[in-house]
Design a protein around this nucleic acid. Structure first.
Lengths: 162, 162
DNA sequence: TCGCTTTGGTTGACACTTCAACCTTCCGTG
DNA sequence: CACGGAAGGTTGAAGTGTCAACCAAAGCGA
C-alpha cells in the first residue's frame, strides 16, 4: 500500500493480462451464446437452473439469492421481469408470511430445456475439450486458491447490506 | 446441440462451478477494492491505466476502445462522465477531423497514482502469492487455451456492429 | 471529381445492477 | 406480553452497458 509496492514484472503482467481477458471475456461470450441460441439471458438461465434442481422446481426467494450469491434487490427486480414474461410464478409462503415461493412455470421449463443443450455444449467445447484432465485439475485448483485468498482477505463478501 | 448432448459429470460440474464462481466473483471483488481504496471504478482505472502507458498520456478514443476491446458507445458514455469529473480532457485530433484525442489530466494522474499501489497489491496478494510459479504457468496456459477455443468458435468477437 | 463504403464518434432508448430507504413479519429477551 | 432488532422483500433513483440509429469526415474506385 505504501511506497515500497512490489510492482508486477513483465512476465507477471502477461499472466495478469491473460487472466483478466478471460474473466472479462468469458462471461460475455457465454451470454452471447445463450442469447443467440435461446430466449434466455445468462442470469435468467441461472435462476431457472437453480429452480430446476429444487424439489418441485420451487424455492424461497432468499434461497435463490443465497445460492447465486446475489443481492436481494437484484433478484427481486429480475424476478419481476421473469414473472412478467411468464417464466416463473410467485406464491405466498405458508410458513413465513414475509416470504415468497418462486416456482418455474411450464414455459420456464420449456425455455431452459431448450437452452440447456447448447449451453452445456458451449461449456464442454470451450472449457473441457481444450484442456487435458491434468490441466482441468490445475485450473480448478488455481481458481480455488485464488478464491480462498479473496475470502480470507475479506474481499469476497459484499460490504454489509446483504 | 441435439438430443445426444454430453452432459457434465459430477466432477466436471465441480470444476465448472469453481470456474464460474471465480469469473463472477473476481471482478466484483476487484471493483470493491478499488472503490474502497480510491475514488476510481474498475473501468475508470482501466482507461487511465491505458492512457498512462501512452505517449504524452494521450490516445485517440478509438485506440482506447481497441485496447480495452470495448464498444465505441460504451467508451463514449464513460468518457463523457470522466470528462465531467475532470479525469480526462478531450481535444480535437489534428490529423483526422472526426477523431478526438483523449488525455489524462493532472487530476486523473493523481487519482491513478493513488489507486495503483493498492490495486497492484490486491493482484499480487490474491493471484500471485497464493499460487506457486508452476501453478501460475498452468493457470495462464489454461486461460489461453480456453480463450483460443472461444476465438476459434467465433464467440469472442461481438456480433458485428463493432 | 463524383459517389459509395468505411471509419470515428455521439446520442437516446432501453435493460440491468447497485444503493439506500422502506415496510412487514419474525424472533429473542426482559 | 412487549419491545427492539434481524430477516425477507420491494421500490425508486442513479449509474452503467447495449443496441440501433444517426451524422460527419475519410478513403477509394471509376
Amino acid at each position: 500500500m505504501n511506497s515500497d509496492t512490489r510492482w508486477l514484472s513483465d512476465h507477471e503482467q502477461q499472466l495478469w493480462r491473460g487472466l483478466r481477458e478471460l474473466i472479462w471475456g468469458f462471461e460475455s461470450a457465454m451470454d452471447r451464446q445463450l442469447q443467440r441460441d435461446s430466449e434466455l439471458s445468462g442470469v435468467e438461465y441461472s435462476v431457472l437452473a437453480a429452480l430446476s434442481e429444487a424439489e418441485d422446481a420451487t424455492m424461497r426467494a432468499r434461497d435463490i439469492a443465497h445460492a447465486l450469491d446475489w443481492e436481494r434487490s437484484r433478484l427481486s427486480h429480475l424476478l419481476k421481469r421473469m414473472e412478467a414474461r411468464g417464466l416463473v410464478a410467485r406464491t405466498e409462503c405458508p410458513t413465513d408470511a414475509r416470504g415468497f415461493n418462486i416456482s418455474m412455470t411450464a414455459a420456464g421449463r420449456t425455455a431452459i430445456e431448450r437452452a440447456a443443450p447448447g449451453h452445456v455444449s458451449f461449456v464442454r467445447e470451450n472449457v473441457f475439450d481444450p484442456l487435458t484432465p491434468a490441466e482441468q485439475e490445475a485450473l480448478l485448483s488455481a481458481a480455488t486458491k485464488i478464491q480462498n485468498s479473496l475470502r480470507a482477505a475479506g474481499w469476497w463478501e459484499r460490504a454489509k447490506g446483504d
